[in-house]
Design a protein around this nucleic acid. Structure first.
Lengths: 354, 354
DNA sequence: TTGAAAGCGCTAACAC
DNA sequence: GTGTTAGCGCTTTCAA
């Protein structure tokens, strides 16, 4: 820290000293030699451990900036057995849900002196396994895992291999890890209840394949809960699965419409799907919300960048990411319980589509 | 690799051996001891350097899986002086433009055995500097830099400090780095030319503050080029700056409309702004494209998730990310020129908004 | 307050 | 084919 500001302070006079060591970066040894002290003293100054006389401190800081010395994080990591690196495994950063999550994770980690290695699993368990292995090998201090929620024996082995793991946004059935989730079932219940209370009775549930098993199931359960609560008959023809929306937004609503089943409301398992449904409804001449009401889930920033804004359920992605990261760092630093469960509340937000 | 599959093959019989070493992970030494060989032989098996007899190989693989050994990447990195970690600095992953870019970077890096540390600068030079320092300290093998394009002496110092750096999507004036950009000026020219050829004469240019200086300037230049080419008078009242759209999508079009200046087309500096403009136009009762045509830039996946889909300029973000990553790895492995320039072509894509 | 020295886990000469 | 050993750059006892 001091070292760095000292360096900035003397960019001009730094050059002459800089490279009598041929083009490799300066090490602590070089600094020690130039300052005429031992490497341990340099280390004390660099890490601000204290107990170094003002005179030496000054001399060492001078040498540090002259040599443009930066302590080697890898060597340090090896020695102290901590990298201050966190792994974050998500299905896809291109998906704004995870983008928002990643943003909050990264920021929270940073405030605490950690960096984030981002890993796109593409939604495949094999890749999840591959990344877990990689992160363990790279000695990440902890792993934040936004898994697809599919159980696999290898996942169990890896998440139990000693490295702190927090599963975020969803649970993996059978994996006893610390997890931070959003209150999916309640949120879905609220959304569908709202639609019912507005007088809708034929409410479709549209969901994507590219989603975590458990989060999806919870939202589906919430949907059914609401129907039951208000004695609206369940019709399985209103439950529609669509392919990955980011790849092909085409089929979402069409299937529903083509099927000829009457419906006056749609509850989508996430915002992207909701948007895709709206797109297709509008393309086919329906008006939203006049002809059909649509609600999404997650409240990605985008879903508000249209007119009318999407009615949705805010799952507080920022809070989710933040909480999960805090938990993970707690585990990594040995001051948190393992296997805890945190639930972030979600709440409906009315835009203009329902 | 072999080690890992061997391990998977014997999860059941692994346990008994596993923890006579108290709860620390097994090291190469432990494996050597159990297999009754030297650590160098273990290393040779782990790294598949060859030259080890079948018998020993087998014995070592057995020990590896029994101990659930995983080579320590940090120790290896220290020794071979390479982390196989790439840093990727972006203004914000929550922004889908960078999400798309990050996705392609991550994938390309992965195919080549590298992982990516994602860093959100939040668009501030101070954070960019902070991250550059961090990545250098962490011994990243290279840095992919999606900078805001603002020059700063510290950036110059850091990017010249020996670590390979590729600037992607934009240039930083005054920083002679390798860079991979998209053909912004031409793309903007094409977009605006298209609008002009459709008969529009009052075309606004709307841009955001949250954008890279150079990319923006190039797009602005392209806009002016087209006006000049077709002898459409330039009216600076049609050039409108809006605040960060992700934070507040409110003001984009309103300013333009409130100003009372007539316009029949909008060229936005990126898709997000285009969407925000459309939202506000529609909210105020204008119809797109009937009353006003709108074109965006970048072709983020989202801009196609509406009806009608946004007309925009595809800047081939995936290709951009891919190309930049390849260049960076080339630099990192010492087989690419420094200071090269690559330009990815962009081309207009007609949705239904223009 | 300072320095010497051991050692984190690994690779790569080099010797056998 | 296999083993011995030095050392990557750092932190951290321990002694002085």
């Amino acid at each position: 820290m001091q070292a760095e500001s000292a360096f900035q302070g003397t960019p001009a006079m730094a050059e002459p000293f800089a490279r009598d060591l041929r083009d490799r970066p300066a090490t602590i040894k070089d600094v020690a030699k130039l300052a005429n002290v031992s490497i341990s003293t340099v280390s004390r100054v660099v890490n601000q451990t204290g107990g170094v006389s003002d005179e030496l401190t000054l001399r060492i800081e001078g040498a540090i900036s002259a040599l443009r010395y930066r302590s080697n994080g890898v060597a340090r990591a090896l020695r102290v057995n901590a990298t201050r690196l966190l792994g974050f495994i998500v299905p896809s950063v291109a998906n704004p849900t995870f983008g928002a999550l990643a943003q909050s994770v990264e920021q929270t980690a940073n405030e605490r002196g950690y960096s984030t290695i981002l890993c796109n699993s593409g939604g495949s368990v094999d890749n999840e396994v591959r990344y877990l292995r990689l992160l363990i090998k790279q000695q990440a201090d902890g792993i934040l895992f936004n898994s697809m929620g599919i159980y696999d024996q290898r996942l169990a082995n890896l998440t139990n291999s000693g490295i702190p793991v927090v599963v975020v946004g969803r649970k993996i059935p059978g994996l006893p890890t610390t997890n931070v989730t959003t209150n999916n079932r309640q949120g879905a219940f609220d959304a569908v209840s709202y639609l019912i209370n507005k007088g809708h009775r034929r409410i479709a549930f549209v969901f994507g394949v590219y989603e975590s098993a458990t989060a999806l199931e919870d939202r589906y359960d919430g949907y059914k809960d609401a129907l039951r609560q208000y004695r609206v008959p369940f019709d399985e023809r209103l439950v529609v699965k669509v392919p990955n929306v980011l790849d092909s937004a085409e089929e979402a609503a069409r299937r529903l419409i083509d099927s000829g089943v009457a419906f006056d409301g749609v509850f989508a398992s996430n915002d992207l799907i909701a948007l895709s449904v709206i797109k297709n409804l509008e393309r086919m001449g329906f008006r939203v919300p006049n002809d059909v009401c649509v609600m999404g889930y997650d409240m990605i920033p985008f879903s508000q960048m249209r007119y009318p804004a999407l009615s949705t359920v805010d799952s507080h992605l920022d809070q989710l990411g933040r909480e999960a990261t805090i938990q993970l760092i707690g585990l990594a630093e040995g001051m948190a319980d393992n296997h805890s469960e945190t639930v972030v509340k979600s709440e409906i937000v009315l835009g203009g589509t329902a």
